[in-house]
């Protein structure tokens, strides 16, 4: 089984970010970058499938500049077999990413595209769904459990009303939620092994055609100080006074 795992390079989710002075983006100078945590969960799941079945082959792919190699190497260190960098300096919105990944899927013919449900930088939560639509493949989003059967997957997904279990024929798209697994520590021997794993670069299949445009990025307003209340009655009165209840 061939698994393709798209990996996004994002600003360290625990770092404080500031808008650029012109307000047209996020100031990334001096920031640390990581694999999008949901993508890391997807990589971990794919690698676990490979550890259970040596016939599984895991390819990770990033779309972006040469700096994305850092995250791809990390994915290889976790245990992916090969990496692919679609090299570009252009800005991609979710439909453009989905289009590029669809073109790649047509070429690589994976049985499963396993990816994070969303990226922690823009929180779009769109690419998996759009990709499945473009490929006309079945999809299961927000997966918290994946089980393999012959030619299909059984996926448990987290919904607002509880868990839902789906059966999907391969090929399909699955997006990972937080509770799918807990990614491992990257063992040093894995990092050394990753040095000799293949990392291929190729140009994008098509130029991105973003349909949305970033107009402004703003920091959230600073929180004003709270105040301490002595009793529940006081709290009740205060909330009433504000018209909250």
């Amino acid at each position: 089984m061939k698994i393709l795992v798209p990996v996004k390079r994002v600003v360290d989710p625990f770092a404080k970010v500031r808008p650029t002075p012109d307000g047209f983006g996020i100031d990334t100078t001096g920031q640390k970058f990581e694999i999008n945590p949901f993508d890391e969960i997807a990589i971990e799941e794919a690698v676990r499938m490979r550890e259970r079945d040596p016939a599984v082959d895991v390819t990770v792919v990033s779309i972006g500049g040469p700096e994305c190699e850092e995250q791809l190497r990390k994915a290889l260190a976790i245990g992916a077999d090969r990496a692919l960098l679609i090299e570009t300096d252009r800005t991609y919105d979710p439909p453009s990413v989905a289009a590029e990944l669809a073109a790649l899927a047509a070429d690589l013919k994976p049985d499963l595209i396993l990816m994070g449900k969303q990226a922690t930088d823009d929180d779009c939560n769109q690419v998996g769904q759009m990709l499945a639509a473009k490929l006309d493949w079945p999809q299961a989003t927000f997966a918290s459990k994946i089980e393999r059967a012959e030619g299909s997957l059984t996926v448990t997904r987290e919904t607002d009303t509880g868990e839902e279990t789906l059966e999907l024929p391969l090929p399909c798209v699955v997006t990972a939620d937080l509770r799918l697994n807990e990614p491992r520590y990257i063992a040093l021997p894995g990092i050394i092994k990753a040095r000799s794993k293949p990392l291929e670069r190729r140009p994008p299949a098509a130029q991105p055609k973003p349909r949305t445009r970033l107009i402004k990025a703003e920091a959230p307003p600073p929180r004003s100080a709270g105040r301490k209340l002595a009793s529940v009655d006081e709290l009740f009165a205060a909330l009433k006074g504000k018209g909250v209840i």
């Binding site: 850092e70 260190a77 520590y185 990257i186 063992a187 040093l188 990092i191 040095r195």
Partner: peptide
């Protein structure tokens, strides 16, 4: 970069 990744594992 990969040496720093090893260091990150140690810190984690």
């Amino acid at each position: 970069a990969d040496e720093q990744l090893m260091v990150a594992t140690a810190e984690q």
